[in-house]
Design a protein around this nucleic acid. Structure first.
Lengths: 231, 231
DNA sequence: AAATGAAAAAGTGTCGACACTTTTGTGTTG
DNA sequence: CAACACAAAAGTGTCGACACTTTTTCATTT
């Protein structure tokens, strides 16, 4: 979740930056569907800007892995295949573990206590939903986002928060996936926070990696089941 | 090292793509020095293109972490601080280990044997240099590049090859760093290749992470020494 | 000499037009 | 009816001009 800008800050941004954010959101939420061809004249008209400005935004989206451009053929919103999603989970596992290990060293006591309180809130909302799902989108990212910031490593923050999280959100919107094992996931989160509080960097790393791998396995199993249902 | 294009392929690319590559190279090699202000009119003139085209390239370079842009103030080439370099090495350690673990599964026998031959070549070149340095720039990346490709994970390839490697090369050009422990590094490489050949994913992951961490420690030590020399 | 304010110059962001490429539609032929 | 060729339409890449913002220069005041 990128840092939310105030309305003032947003208004001071160049048009191309604003359109970049709007496009990113529209792509992630599927308003501009995955795989669709982007028509510059049409899109520029609907945003009320010139094509040159739009192209700047598209250039940046290309580097964020959200669009693919081919010379003379224009831009297309990426389709995130299952294989690519697995690739991303593998990256996320490696970086998430590392970030968590660093957070065990770098997060303040107050930040870690706050994280525990966040999990209390999450537990409440699970019970209100009668245990059928864990988080709202932002909720889940909130836990991971907090730890990511706690790593104090600007580069891993840029990579995850600047690109990969958007791709994963896009997949979520596309396939309406939510966490299927809420109480187990919450328990794993709590153990991660314990490791952070104990400043056990290696254990925090391991637990986070295991947690993300479990999410990946769950996706793999669900895909296997749906293949069998079709075969 | 990005895949080299043939001259035909390069000529078929849009101007903005070509300028993007040229700019990236100029920034990495320090032709456009780190920290310097980019003058769009001047640069566009020297490349013989319009400012609009240049801005598209700059938009992409912004997302590659090579320039920083501020509204109404223009773009500036990043300065890579020591702290940021350490951040990058931490990311590289996590991703490099993971890529190597995947390569142990996914690389063909032929690819792995080829990698061993590559190390033979590297050993020869060390002896020709009388043990004073390990590789040419591309040489070092060649080993890591090979393993990265062998991971078959498109996302980690994009992240490392598309961005972080350029930043690290930039730092190398800036500070003329080369590997200070060539024979030890070569030995570590050989052990990594052994783990690949044995298809031992976990060991390959561990050895690669250790190898990259050793490089980071070496940098940290050298910085410590130079601080003491100054203090 | 230093500080201040205004004007000029330079730079940034955006626009719409033009040249080139690709796609679509139409007419002709087999 | 299908295949092919050509023209028209639409889209892509790039350009230079204009509006706005920042920096530099110059003149005036303290």
């Amino acid at each position: 979740m990128n840092k939310a800008l105030t309305e003032e800050e947003a208004a001071a941004l160049p048009l191309s930056d604003r359109v970049f954010e709007q496009l990113q959101t529209a792509i992630v939420k599927g308003t501009i569907p995955a795989g669709s061809k982007i028509s510059e004249p049409e899109l520029a008209k609907s945003y009320g800007i010139s094509r040159g400005t739009l192209r700047e935004a598209l250039s940046r989206l290309e580097e964020r892995y959200l669009v693919v451009r081919s010379p003379n053929l224009g831009a297309r919103v990426v389709t995130l295949s299952y294989e690519e999603l697995i690739d991303i989970y593998q990256v996320r596992e490696a970086l998430g573990g590392m970030a968590c290990g660093l957070a065990a060293v770098n997060m303040s006591d107050e930040e870690i206590a706050d994280l525990g309180r966040l999990l209390d809130d999450h537990e409440k909302s699970i019970h209100e939903d009668e245990g059928s799902s864990y988080y709202q989108q932002e909720g889940e990212f909130d836990f991971h986002y907090r730890i990511l910031q706690g790593s104090r490593n600007g580069k891993v923050i840029s990579i995850l928060d600047g690109g990969l999280y958007q791709l994963m959100r896009m997949y979520r919107y596309q396939f309406s996936t939510s966490t299927p094992r809420p109480l187990q996931a919450l328990k794993e989160h709590r153990r991660i926070v314990e490791a952070l509080a104990e400043r056990d960097s290696e254990l925090a790393d391991l637990l986070m990696r295991r947690h993300i791998r479990a999410a990946r396995k769950s996706i793999e199993e669900r895909r296997q089941q749906s293949l069998e249902r079709k075969g």
